[in-house]
Amino acid sequence: MSNEKTQTAGATRKVTIKAFRFNAETDYLPYYKTYEMEVGKDELILDLLNRIKWEHDGSFSYRRSCRHGICGACGIKVNGKPVLSCKQNAHELIDLFGDELVFEPQSQKRAVKDMIVDKGDFWSKHAAVKPYVETEVDPHPTSETLMSPEQVENFLDADYCIQCGSCHYACPVIEVNEDYLGPAAFAAAYRFTVDPRDEAGRERLETTAELGSGVWDCVKCYECAEACPKGVNPIEKITKLHNLQFEEKVAERNVATKHAEGFVRSIKKFGYLDEQDIVLYSEGLGVVKHLSEALKMIKAGKVHPFDFAKKKMPRSKNLEEIQKLIEISKTNEL
């Protein structure tokens, strides 16, 4: 299985690989080990993982199974970029990062051994959104269940998810809020909610609408969109869940939903966002907790607290156009 055979001379590039090493059973702290190798133009990151194990250190550990980008086992991070080892060409990464590649597990704090992480949190959060079609199944159907191409199109890209965890462990909110369900769970929630056979949509919308664990806690950093090797684009599905929550009247009036809806209220009045009003409107009485920051803003001349007539508030030219467009285009209410 040596790769050398398939490599043509001149097409190889010399790289230094710094690999994260850690054994939860014996090591107190992780460390990095350096491996030098000539890398052929067709070699994948998985080939390099194999070569570390076969040519350097038999104890080096990582997950892989299908080698075809479909089982989702082999996700790691290379120079901070989440990749599927079995799909990622190594030369592409050398072009991107230079000749020192750093191999790390998807989440260092969940590392069990080298590249292997404990994905328990991923699986339990995924399970929490019922990632399957829930319906009464007729055991003796007389006809097929038909779905239109448009209905399929609606969730096809979300269906490509292989649960590799790349997005989940790239998400900064997962790191700081242990209740947060995360991008893969949300993409799955969307996928099954819009499946015409499914009957648990409302329940999923309620689960994902909860403050603290649901979609309203997403910081919109697009790390998940960038990370996904399958083009699932989880943040786009999150936006769709937000919209569905309003369409299906699942959204309750709270600080987050009022904040989203408050934009329309403001834009209608001024064309611009009334930054003071949106905080007041979203928070209601809760606004007092922003007092010390409000004072700082007043001091720096950023807000004008006594401008009750909103004289200092800018207004878009041709405001009536904006008002008309809102009137004729708006689709949702809170």
Binding site: N243, F263, I267, G271, K317, L325, I326, S329, T331, N332
Partner: peptide
């Protein structure tokens, strides 16, 4: 561009995706 409106700051689209497209297109 004094005629322009707010872009929705990535929040308006959560409430109403179509409206957000219309205003940004304008």
């Amino acid at each position: 561009l004094d005629e322009a409106s707010c872009c929705g700051a990535s929040h308006l689209q959560d409430f109403d995706e179509f409206l957000s497209l219309v205003l940004n297109a304008r």
